[in-house]
Design a binder for these strands. Structure first.
Lengths: 333, 333
DNA sequence: CTGAAAGCGCTAACAT
DNA sequence: ATGTTAGCGCTTTCAG
């Protein structure tokens, strides 16, 4: 039983009123008498009337749809951001259309085009690694130039004129390192990073180094930077084997934390050299897998919510030109 | 510099041709001479022309957009399904609009309404727990009634007339249990489930029981079914403490597998009673966290791809009425 | 309070 | 090869 979609015009014919009366009734306009409104609304319900949003959008010039581009959905950080965004937008009557860039700039540009075509009222984006490394943001700038508001989160570019949502990477890294030193009494800390080519990766490294610097009387620090997981693994193994006094590791991104855990386990360091405290930026699902673990959760969901909030605000108010950067606090766990 | 979006009509005026000439040129119609086509295309490029999809959709009657409703994005199974769907759709020129039901039927119904409004050409859905338990699918049926193709995956309802994508739960469970018995030489296996209220949960339990039945000469089996994680934990602990001969656990869903691992670790069973092999339905990221682990991966990404493939096929060909159920093979890992 | 009519931007059948 | 025209379904002035 395919019942073709009911339209305003069909209702108007059936009830012998004009299309505009139907339209106004269904949007509960005060221009229409209560009795006809009721009559029309009841009838529309009975027919399972659903308005064609495309027509409405075309007419009204906006879409109630937000675009989202993220590098990866399998990384729990982004999945959580997504959840926050989806929830906030849903509660405010917006739809969400999502693309995964897979860290590829090409895919990112392509996705952006699909969204640029009058399809979304605004875009939330965390750029791909490739984009950040290339430092070339013309695709985003041209979208902004077309008048579509953009919010960047996590990986941002200072030079783009848009709202931004980040955590205070420097501070989180600094304070966690101090936490390792002062609360966990670590005296020889390794930092491991796979993202030192990214802006926020550098901030985190800087936070680590500054914290070491400031506590140089009681702690030694070494940074291990690698471009891929297996070379990180090798460097970690070498460092841990070489220096039995290492008692803390700061993983600057999730993969680094994971690799630190598995390497410490593999080498059985905790039995041989004494307990190594591992800390790092990471979604908090790992707690059970390694005991001496300090996790910096990024409040990913909140980052999502803030991004969504920002984009809707900006859509409501396109005039103001002073863009704001929201800093979401992190949690130690 | 807000440059308002260029339209066909603006181009046509600027170049002194008709709108339809512009339209045809930009869609590279053979009706138009090469020279004018080139002239118009070049000009459009220069103006950064982007077609308004809403207008086109309104006119053409389809949207190139697929809706997706899933219970949860933080569960890696669904995240992977999502990735598969997004990839396939993107490669075929479709957009994806996604809602998370959070296992709530209300949210699911609401999301579905947002998509029903002529917004999507088709819907891919994994229903919420609440929906499956209520066994009431009128929202989906009414969408189908409106002529929108639907694909259900993972949690399906036999009674709905639509394409379906699932793994062979019964077989996966049966064969894994036999694997524990014959390859891993388990002789006393516990099954743990948190999803025995769901259809595919029951199938898995049945697979387990039948495998035990069939090998009753060499193995004993016990099923532990719980509704929430902490009661599962309690039951697991009790069983493991009580019976030191338990040497295998089959976790019927991810949370159950995780709980089995953490409980075995917590009670230090492997040292006290001998090694317990844990097997179960689970995304494969856990491999490093527990050694004697057999994982049934659900080929989540493939489920996504198959779902996407099915929905596009169905959109292309709305007539055929014989719906098919695709079974995606599972992997032991 | 109700209706007529214009038009959002695009496509496609039908002229020319 | 190019142009004219009639909508897609809806909102929204403006008239009655």
């Amino acid at each position: 039983m395919i019942q073709t979609r009911t339209t305003l015009s069909e209702i108007s014919k059936a009830l012998n009123v004009s299309i505009s009366t139907v339209s106004k009734s269904l949007s509960d306009s005060s221009e229409i008498s209560l009795s006809t409104k009721k009559r029309i609304q009841d009838f529309a319900n009975k027919c399972n009337y659903v308005p064609n949003n495309f027509a409405a959008n075309l007419r009204k010039g906006y879409t109630n749809t937000i675009g989202l581009i993220i590098p990866n959905m399998l990384n729990p950080f982004y999945a959580k951001v997504f959840v926050g965004i989806e929830k906030y937008l849903d509660e405010h009557g917006y739809r969400l259309i999502t693309s995964i860039s897979n860290e590829s700039k090409d895919k990112e540009v392509k996705s952006l085009k699909k969204m640029a075509n009058g399809y979304v009222d605004g875009l939330i984006i965390c750029t791909s690694k490739e984009t950040e490394v290339s430092n070339e943001y013309s695709h985003i700038n041209s979208l902004i130039g077309q008048g579509t508001p953009v919010v960047m989160f996590d990986r941002i570019c200072e030079l783009i004129d848009c709202d931004k949502v980040i955590i205070n990477d420097y501070e989180a890294s600094f304070e966690t390192t101090e936490h390792l030193i002062n609360t966990k009494n670590c005296s020889n800390i390794l930092m491991a990073s796979l993202i030192d080519d990214l802006y926020h990766g550098k901030l985190r490294t800087r936070g680590f180094n500054d914290a070491i610097e400031r506590n140089i009387d009681k702690v030694r620090g070494t940074t291990i930077i690698a471009n891929d997981i297996s070379s990180l693994q090798k460097k970690l193994e070498a460092a841990l084997k070489n220096d039995p006094t290492i008692d803390g590791i700061l993983g600057v991104n999730e993969q680094a934390v994971l690799k630190a855990i598995s390497t410490v386990k593999k080498l059985n360091i905790n039995s041989l050299h004494g307990e190594v405290i591992i800390a790092g930026f990471c979604a908090q699902r790992l707690v059970e897998s390694y005991e001496p673990l300090v996790i910096i959760t990024q409040n990913a969901k909140k980052i999502g919510v803030e991004s969504a909030k920002n984009i809707l605000q900006r859509i409501k108010n396109t005039e103001t030109k002073n863009f704001n950067t929201t800093t979401v606090e992190y949690d130690l766990y």
